[in-house]
Write a protein that binds this DNA or RNA. Sequence first.
RNA 1: GGAGAGGUGGCAGAGUGGUCGAAUGCGGCGGUCUUGAAAACCGUUGACUCGAAAGGGUCCGGGGGUUCGAAUCCCUCCCUCUCCGCCA
Length: 426
Amino acid sequence: MLDPQVLRRDTEAIAAALKAQGYELDVPAFASLEEKRREIQEQTQNLQNERNTRSKEIGKAKGRGEDITELVAEVGNLGERLKDAEAGLKDVQDELQDIYVGIPNLTHESVPAGKDEEDNVEVRRWSEPRDLGFEPRDHVDIGEQLGLLDFEAASNLTGSRFVVLKGAMSRLHRALAQFMLDMHVTDHGYTEVYVPFLVNRNSLYGTGQLPKFEDDQFHADTESDYFLIPTAEVPVTNLVADSILEADELPLKFACHSPCFRREAGSYGKDTRGILRQHQFEKVELVQIVRPEDSYDALDELTSHAEAVLQRLELPYRTVVLCTGDIGFSAAKTFDIEVWVPGQQTYREISSCSNCEDFQARRMQARWRNPDASRPELVHTLNGSGVAVGRAMLAVIENYQQADGSVVIPDALRPYMGGTERIELA
RNA sequence: GGAGAGGUGGCAGAGUGGUCGAAUGCGGCGGUCUUGAAAACCGUUGACUCGAAAGGGUCCGGGGGUUCGAAUCCCUCCCUCUCCGCCA
């Protein structure tokens, strides 16, 4: 959520900035609603003031043993009028709230303007795609030939966009997750956390998925009103919801391995082949809670932590900064890391690292005690995949494929694979 | 699943209809004392919000109700703890 005070004060300027990002704010409607709110709020508070004053008088009179019937009669229907005023105020506030929670974050000045992913800007590239010396196949062909990747079994069990992994492939998947998690904890200073994979509405509201993106979520159809997490960002970032952190507690750095569940509504027919876009996938997520002045350094650091995973796996990648038209709802700036996918002869997203500044913090009321400020201030929150496990497996399979259909295990993963050096046809 | 207890400020914990945004302690901050520190003592110390300001208003788990007036009474939901049962 944007700062309501700033939005009220600089409505025109912010509306213009939002428009450049593709969001239309109805300025006259917003302004008149705010004006209405102010009026009703003033009236309501005056009534409240009167009630408080008169009730105190009655209390005092009663304490002195005086007759209070006349004083009580004077109050008349104040209570009713106050109730009406409060109800009216609540209506306007709800209406305003609906507007506020639907407005996306403002992007950082360094974010390039653009319409869609075509306008994202590459900022760096690491390593070169290998020359395999033969026509690369994609992971579906390789995995199915090895008998270790089974989409048909998954569609029988559930439906489309799921997969069953077997044997060494299943272990490779697990090895990747363990490898990444260990790396972030041991080398990068993150604290490992294990969290619920079902969350309530409030948590999804805090990170910005609700109310606007409810259709993208899997809702557990029970009386408890829970949702399957679309990313560990939701439970992990919400660890600091409704809290006031001491200055010396920051930065907080959390790493979390979790499954993620996405409806993929609106992506019909997109990436239907293979494991690129599944309803269920795993991810090692990185979350940082930092002081506002540190958040852009933290974004660079967090992004480098995700990149380090690909470097250790020796997978070629490039890093792009998302343009204003492609960036997510809650982010002020996002770097996507795209790994080389030989089967498609292109780079595909494997990690997305964002600085949300105070957008999520305001929604979830996550604050810290700035010693230089008189009051608690909002923290900045960051998150990034470090990295998506299934896509990393896809990249390993395709980049390390051999002419004979086997797959060589990257050195970094061998300790996690019981020393296995190669996955081959049994 | 059954029975009971309880949710109050950063923490602990009083407060059962009125001068209570809330005693007291701890913690924090400032000071006195000290070479310095500790101890002791004194003072101070919740969050949010409207407003240019003066000054208002809101908040005692969430929501609703009773009342001139609710932390306190009623309803409802959520959560925590204890005991029993069941269970990976």
